[in-house]
Design a protein around this nucleic acid. Structure first.
Lengths: 270, 270
DNA sequence: GAGTGGTCTAGACCACTGT
DNA sequence: CAGTGGTCTAGACCACTCC
């Protein structure tokens, strides 16, 4: 879409912000270029510091610029995004029947989170909990039935910020034949969740993934080290077995500026 | 995730906002409940109007509340989301070989945008344009080669706001055998893009969809009637034929509070 | 008409950056 | 050290809603 003009009805702060935004979109202001200072804007537009400030705020909330104490605001350079493709589901399945050394060759953070960085602090929490109404309905069990909850957290050791976060729910009765599946010290499990399910006789037939986006809270911004104007993407994944029964439900969240999702839909041939 | 506490280092506005946010998450403040007024907050927290105002701003930017002139701010009720599932790709393909009356039974806005509302103003713009570098590379053509660009816009006739927007690019040389494909008055084409491609001998083998999210600009907020704190989701879709060549590239955007995406990944059986 | 939130003024002080 | 952006005060006026 082309740069758009600001209607005459817009407030002064919006006019200022859009003037700068159009300069960014046209390339007059390149990534990392310094923006006008608050005093500049006050002089140019004959406005108070509050209005100049608000204009800068708007641009930051749109994810277009960064700003910080003492440093001039700058046009935000788009960060590299990790790609997370739906084809890893089939790849994981293909590995299930391989001998353990081959399965173990792929790290858990790679299979479960699509991120393959080495120097990360990885932690897993297992517990048994009772299914609430939504979860019970999804998993075709009774409300209050026992489910294994697994929480996977990956953090950058230097900053302590999250790199990845996800939680997974599996009905206890489906997997209780294999007690190792309740032991978090077995993580990272070679071959991932699909191999774990295979040890109790479950073959997956498909994954159904729901994708949505929302803004992070201020607390999430801190925990993830997210800048203003960056949405969170949430993926709810249902793992469906070959009898069309949902055997696992998981939720994953991540900042939209760090990950891009790819989904491949294969069509049957004529 | 559980409600989190505000660190002591947070600014006053953030503390106020988080105090309210936690009340919302705990259910102390139900959807549509009125929030404390600016004067309330000034009195309770002994702060200036600017700080009270900023706290409300933060919550609006997080998409948690709505506010407007003369009306008290309220906890935002989650709107209904339209579901847009990847299975419609196969369904569309299955319809291609049907006789025209059956194909025409499904509206274009339904097939292309996943939205099936009747009273919408639908408009299509066709033009021939030259491929830029990115597009040329994706479509395996030379930069500057002619491509058919089609823009689909759906608007609510009362407000004039967008309901759906997408653009599509197809290399001219792939489809020039059928001149009807360059005539926008043929829209809505019964059977959609897959049938159009079939008229020039192209069968699709898969779709590759990249999903990302970002904040809307102030102009997009106006054009779509989007409230603060609602991200835009962007889907770039590559239509791949049975020889693994990309024959069409399309971009779709929509507000994250109105649409939810579903992707189904089928796995091959053991 | 009273009360709400939206916008704005005209300052102040602070933390931090870069030179 | 000067200059930046971050936070905040203490107001003002306006448009709008609801009673």
């Amino acid at each position: 879409m082309q740069p758009k003009q600001t209607p005459a009805t817009a407030t002064l702060a919006v006019q200022i912000a859009d003037d700068i935004r159009i300069k960014i979109e046209r390339g007059d202001l390149q990534p990392d270029a310094e923006l006008p200072t608050r005093l500049d804007l006050q002089a140019t537009w004959r406005c108070s510091s509050t209005v100049a400030r608000h204009a800068i705020d708007l641009l930051r909330q749109q994810g277009l610029i960064t700003s910080g104490r003492g440093r001039p605001s700058r046009v935000r350079a788009k960060p590299e995004r990790t790609r997370r493709t739906s084809e890893r589901h089939q790849e994981e399945k293909d590995r299930v029947l391989l001998p353990e050394p081959d399965r173990a060759a792929v790290g858990v953070s790679e299979t479960d989170n699509g991120v393959s960085i080495d120097d990360l602090k990885f932690s897993t929490t297992y517990d048994l909990t009772k299914a609430n109404e939504t979860l019970a309905q999804l998993l075709s069990i009774k409300e209050g039935e026992s489910v294994l909850r697994r929480i996977y957290e990956t953090k950058y050791p230097d900053s302590g910020h999250y790199c990845a976060w996800s939680e997974s729910y599996i009905p206890k009765k489906l997997i209780e034949q294999n007690e190792k599946l309740f032991d978090s010290t077995e993580e990272p499990w070679p071959g991932g969740t699909q191999h774990q399910l295979w040890t109790v006789g479950i073959e997956l037939g498909k994954f159904i993934e729901d994708v949505s986006a929302r803004m992070p809270t201020t607390v999430e911004q801190q925990e993830w080290g997210i800048e203003d104007g960056v949405p969170m993407i949430r993926v709810t994944r249902k793992s469906v077995d070959t009898q069309d029964k949902i055997v696992e439900v998981s939720h994953t969240v991540f900042p939209a500026d760090r990950v891009e999702l790819t989904f491949v839909t294969n069509l049957t041939r004529w």
